[in-house]
Amino acid sequence: MGGDHHGHSHAPRNERKIALAAALTGSFMIAELVGGIVSGSLALIADAGHMLTDFASLMLAWFAFRISRRPADWKRTYGFDRFSVLAAFVNGLSLFAIAAWISYEAIERLRAPGEILGGLMLWVAVGGLVVNILAFAILTRGGSDNLNIRAAMLHVAGDLLGSVAAIIASLVIIFTGWTPIDPLLSLLVVLIILRSAWAVVKESGHILLEGAPRGFDRREVADLLMQVEGVCRVDHIHAWSVTQERPVVTMEITATAGSDMTRIKSDARALLLERFHIDHATIEMHEDRS
């Protein structure tokens, strides 16, 4: 069962990165929310709302890493790995709700603009930018394919842009006094939020629906396996992912009479690993009796 450890090698490092980024984001989110309320800036409140989902996503990801280390048991034969995918899915959906709320608020603000303290808004937004750059640097260090780390990075990247939007809005308000820029730029933050939300929901939803791993085409797999010496038929190919890093495949291979089944099986496994990076394959062998 060597294949099972392959997705876990980075877990402790990922867990530390996530915990650090969560601490940074969580502490600043409160400052930004207070700053947004005091200065009257919706762009800051929108960014704090986005930071809240960041914080939630980072905490979910951290919790998912913790829980996925628990070993598999008789009830959950795959362990708790899927929890992280579920966490990413819920997290993506929560972003849609936040985006809707900010949009509603922005439209209300455009109808009836209020006073905004540009100076305070500027300082808070600059602080937010610094925190986001730090969090992003922590998460991107060492790179990662993990869906949760990627979801967290998307959040923080969106947040970074949100902070930039708030800085621009505050400068416009300081120099021209034109306050509608604030809700307009908060709507821009909404678009950024929606884009990252859709990407995460789509990918995690695909895994939860047992969709085929990325780059896996059943027809191509069958064609390639037919080229292995002694294979006369390949049937019932099913592929899915436990998590993004753990693709699994099952299939039936019918071999020509008298051929070496053990060799065919190991050739097929080698091919799946080399071409599709699948190291967990269950292959049922039959001999052609016709």
Rank of each mutant, 00 (worst) to 15 (best):
G3E: 14
H5S: 12
H6W: 07
H8G: 06
A11E: 08
N14L: 07
A19N: 08
L20H: 00
L20Q: 11
L20P: 00
A23H: 04
L24K: 03
T25H: 12
G26L: 13
L33F: 15
V34D: 10
S39Y: 10
S41I: 10
I45A: 01
I45T: 01
D47E: 02
D47S: 05
D47L: 00
A48D: 01
A48W: 02
A48N: 01
H50R: 04
F55Q: 02
A56F: 12
A56Y: 04
S57T: 15
A61E: 12
D73L: 00
R76Q: 06
R76K: 11
Y78E: 03
G79E: 11
G79W: 02
F80A: 05
F83T: 10
S84D: 06
V85G: 08
L86Y: 09
F89V: 00
L93Q: 01
F96R: 06
A97C: 09
W101D: 03
Y104A: 01
A106N: 05
I107L: 00
E108V: 01
R111K: 05
R111S: 04
R111P: 00
P113A: 03
G114A: 14
G114D: 06
E115L: 10
I116N: 06
L117K: 07
L120D: 13
L120Y: 09
M121C: 05
V124I: 14
V124N: 10
A125T: 10
G127A: 07
L129V: 01
V131H: 01
I133G: 08
F136T: 06
I138V: 15
L139V: 05
R141M: 04
R141C: 08
G142K: 13
S144P: 13
N146I: 05
N148T: 06
A152Q: 09
H155K: 07
V156Q: 01
V156D: 01
G158E: 03
G158N: 04
D159R: 04
L160C: 04
A165C: 12
I168K: 10
T176E: 06
P180Q: 02
I181M: 13
L184R: 07
L185K: 13
L185Q: 09
L188V: 13
L188F: 15
V189S: 08
V190D: 11
L191A: 15
I192Y: 11
L194F: 08
L194K: 05
A199K: 14
V200Y: 05
V200H: 13
V201C: 07
K202F: 12
S204A: 11
S204Y: 11
L209V: 11
G215H: 11
R218D: 13
R219K: 13
R219E: 15
R219Y: 09
A222G: 12
A222T: 13
A222M: 04
L225G: 08
M226P: 01
V228F: 01
V228P: 04
V228K: 12
V234C: 04
S241V: 00
S241F: 02
S241R: 06
Q244Y: 03
R246D: 11
V248N: 10
V248P: 07
T250E: 14
T250H: 02
M251E: 03
I253K: 02
T256H: 14
G258S: 11
S259T: 15
M261E: 12
T262A: 15
I264G: 11
I264T: 02
K265G: 03
R269A: 12
L272E: 13
L273E: 14
R275I: 04
R275K: 15
F276H: 07
F276N: 11
H277N: 14
T282V: 14
T282S: 11
T282M: 15
E287G: 00
E287D: 02
D288S: 09
R289Q: 08
